[in-house]
Amino acid sequence: MTKQFTGSPEDADLRRADSLAREIFSDVADKWALLIIEAPG
């Protein structure tokens, strides 16, 4: 997926870093959710 930025290069870098952070957080949250669901109640 290619994203085009209309702002300055600094803005593009910040958005890319934010996007990467969101992806990582999403992956971690998914793994935690699976552990919580599998945990004995």
Rank of each mutant, 00 (worst) to 15 (best):
K3F: 09
K3A: 12
Q4D: 07
F5T: 00
T6C: 11
T6W: 05
T6Q: 09
G7F: 02
G7E: 01
S8M: 12
S8A: 14
S8F: 07
P9F: 13
D11Y: 02
D11W: 01
D11K: 05
D11L: 05
D11V: 15
A12P: 06
A12E: 10
D13K: 09
D13I: 13
L14N: 12
L14F: 13
R15M: 15
R15L: 15
R16V: 15
A17V: 01
A17R: 14
A17I: 06
A17D: 11
D18E: 14
D18M: 06
D18H: 06
S19L: 10
S19M: 10
L20Y: 11
L20T: 08
L20N: 06
L20I: 11
A21E: 09
A21P: 02
R22T: 05
R22S: 00
R22A: 12
E23P: 02
E23V: 00
E23I: 04
I24K: 03
F25T: 06
S26Y: 00
S26I: 08
D27E: 10
D27M: 02
V28K: 03
V28F: 10
D30Q: 08
D30Y: 05
K31W: 09
K31A: 13
W32T: 15
W32K: 14
W32R: 15
A33F: 08
L34F: 00
L35V: 04
L35W: 05
L35T: 12
I37L: 15
I37Q: 10
I37C: 11
E38W: 07
A39N: 14
G41V: 14
G41R: 12
G41P: 04
